[in-house]
Design a protein around this nucleic acid. Sequence first.
DNA 1: AAAAAAT
Length: 628
Amino acid sequence: MPKNKKPAGGRPAKNFDPSYADRRSGGKGAQRPGSRSPGHRGHRADDAAPRKARWNADERAARAAERSGGGRDERSARPSDRDERGPRRSFDRDDRPQRSFNRDDRAQRSFDRDDRAPRRSFDRDDRPQRSFNRDDRPQRSFNRDDRAPRRSFDRDDRPQRSFNRDDRPQRSFNRDDRPQRPADRGDRAPRREQAPRSSNFYPSANTSAGFTADDDVVLERLEAQATVAADVEGVTFGSLGLGGNIERALAELGAPTAFPIQAATIPDVLAGRDVLGRGRTGSGKTIAFGAPLVEKLMENGGGKKRQMGRKPRALILAPTRELALQIDRTVQPIARSVGLFTTQIYGGVPQHRQVGALQRGVDIIVGTPGRIEDLIEQGRLDLSEVTVTVLDEADHMCDLGFLEPVQRIIRQTAPGGQKLLFSATLDKGVAALVNEFLTEPSIHEVAGEDQASSTIDHRVLVVEHRNKDMLIEQLADRDGKTLIFSRTRAYAERLTDQLEDAGIRAVALHGDLNQSRRTRNLQQLTSGRVSVLVATDVAARGIHVDDIDLVVQADAPDEYKTYLHRAGRTGRAGKEGRVVTLIPRSRRRRMADLLSRAEIEANFVEAAPGDDVVLEIAGEPTVEDLTD
DNA sequence: AAAAAAT
């Protein structure tokens, strides 16, 4: 019986977005050379253009282009820039340590290119015949920027270990209405006990149960098998069913034994079941799906491991390029330990390298939806043999704009293939995918992983709008790593400039930057070369950087899940972290509602620049903060 | 509003 309930045909129209196209082309061209502000290098007066209060997309792009293209010149120009500004704004902080303006400090490059042996290029095209016609694409421009990412294993994302709370209400769960699994999949591990369920478990597909995007409701939690952390303390990967090579690779990644979410999901993944996994931010979800996925491919792979042009058998989808890259940094060494290959397929970089890897043959693809669809349409990527598909940040992948491409991609994979959905905020928003693609999924979470047991201190500062930027500057003027979230790219860019002008080393991360700049800027925070990153929500989910101890939300999030993910960039590895959200007075009520949905307790304090509370927050978070 | 494909 085919698993797909919907016909594979009838592709919806492409989600072509003209404004997106404008932004992209705007970002490349030099239609607006130079800065618009007189204080900046390369300023060109443009009297013809009327002064605008806000930047439009093109200006933003030009600004981004300037920032990214500036290179060293930009840097050498900066200090004098500052001199012209006159005396620094004073907010009673003359004790600020002198910042070094030696900005020629780009991250060390390690030419981490693909370490596989050079392949002989057979003149052979064993690609299967495609049904759709491929118009001959023009030659792609060759751009050196797509070198492989630097390897930096941010391995240490261990959660706090000792909690023992099993007080979640038992939920009923009934799958009588699920299609039966084919008999040949009956060899899986015995089902764990599930209580019967009374009604429709999921809201009907593609309606989100009538909620609009504006309703920040907490969709009903998926009832899950709760694993008690204390019960799986010290469980080895070997005892979960993973082979010795993989276990050793994991140990090298800094994971000698399994985390709770890993202990919970790995056996079911190995048994071939569809799995939904919810684990707190930084709880080790990547290994939870990555390691058993590799084990399964190896078991089924047989002797054709190294075959040229073999088709990929596993696909891992992520919502952002940075996350895809990071996932690959974890999965690749695991895969390589058993002779399997991974490749990254995402946009923003030339495709030739990715295509070359596919032609040589890879086993696991890690990527983002756009480029994957692109390559499928070009006939350069064939997912028909993909038998394991993973969606990281699965609930986000079901949001508007992501869902349809994701559905189209999954429909290209082998029917009946295994599906793994993971997220820290997994909820019924994934129903559309579950209903179409999953069969009797097992659902796992870890007991006691709630906000009360977290190591994060939450504050809300109620601020006057005119004080906001100065307050952010004071918050960012500190020693530890600080991550600042803004709602828009333009504001992220503006804040970055402001911080730099104040002598605080900061870089930006958002979609107006080209990919090499994005990668570099994130790397600069990871390596500690800068201590402040100002980002849009591109950095909200999944990105792991060691030792971020302060998250500042320059704009409050609209959704409680966004709050949880942004906050989850700190307090990792069981360390203390702090989250500060700036809101205007008028937003207090909305913010309180959001926090209650997130099950977070936080004090609201009115604050102005220079207030003690601001200086205190800029200091080190302490254990006392968590207990008061 | 952001993200995800270029041209």
